[in-house]
């Protein structure tokens, strides 16, 4: 098995605060890896670094052997890193379908001039974009109301749209930032099934999650962050028994 993603001594500072501190992390091809840790541990920041939304202060991030340092976020996406956001980043000025079609942007290429005069190629491409987007929506279990604006729909749909949009970019690595936040038990189970289905498509998944039962159920490996540093890593059961982890979550006196 080879490493898809490799972080070496990655650090990120905000002024005086070190949000991510010298973290080493390896994600193997095809695995589901969870990142857990208390609030403010630096999990989202870590995702921002991997997806090149933020530059690292120090250290090296390699994706399929390529260094990501200094890449723009859209370039990282082009390499095959896609993500969702902690607060579902849905575009409210577009319909559900258009939101997912946006994900196909990167995998299509007709430019400003061609779409303006609607060349046959542009027309064909638009049709293909539409079909692909519909397919990903079906994959995530969204089967109707494609033309409604997201604002009118329940929150769980937002999550699904966001994941469908991320999948539409044909990622090799999918970063999910607390996808189960705000979902009820039944919806969470549905989500777990979805995530496994995504992995079966050959997509590697890195997931931040607070819902421990979900983490234990689906992940092959867990990495624990506390105050920006990695304090444990390993199989879910082992991590669960780790003294330091229990301490981080429950405090010394538990």
């Amino acid at each position: 098995m080879n490493d898809l993603l490799e972080l070496t001594k990655v650090t990120r500072r905000f002024g005086g605060l070190t949000a991510v501190q010298s973290v080493d992390l390896r994600v193997r091809q095809g695995q589901i890896k969870a990142v857990i840790g208390p609030n403010g541990a630096g999990k989202t920041t870590l995702f921002n670094l991997i997806s090149c939304v933020l530059p690292v202060s120090a250290g090296l991030i390699q994706f399929q052997g390529n260094a990501l340092n200094r890449l723009k976020a859209y370039a990282a996406a082009a390499l095959g890193i896609s993500r969702t956001f902690q607060t579902a980043a849905i575009f409210h000025n577009m319909s559900i379908l258009e939101n997912v079609m946006l994900g196909r942007h990167m995998r299509s290429r007709r430019g400003l001039f061609r779409v303006a005069i609607k060349t046959p190629g542009a027309r064909r491409e638009e049709k293909a974009i539409r079909e692909d987007a519909l397919q990903w929506l079906h994959f995530m279990g969204v089967n109707d109301r494609f033309d409604s604006l997201p604002g009118e729909l329940p929150f769980v749909i937002h999550r699904k749209i966001e994941i469908a949009r991320a999948l539409a970019t044909e990622p090799k690595l999918l970063l999910l930032d607390e996808p189960a936040a705000g979902l009820d038990i039944r919806e969470t189970e549905e989500l777990a099934a979805c995530i496994q289905k995504i992995r079966d498509q050959g997509i590697t998944i890195l997931i931040i999650e607070h819902d421990m039962s979900l983490v234990m159920d689906i992940s092959d490996e867990v990495c624990v962050l506390n105050y920006g540093a990695k304090i444990a890593e390993g199989a879910p059961r082992d991590v669960q028994r780790n003294e330091e982890v229990i301490e981080a979550y429950l405090g010394k006196e538990h």
Binding site: S51, V53, K72, A73, Y74, A77, A78, S82, R83, F85, A89, F91, H92, N93, M94, L102, G103, H105, M106, R165, A166, T169
Partner: peptide
């Protein structure tokens, strides 16, 4: 709608 998310979508 949100430049950050748009960038992360490869735009």
């Amino acid at each position: 709608g949100g430049e950050l998310a748009a960038n992360a979508m490869g735009i």
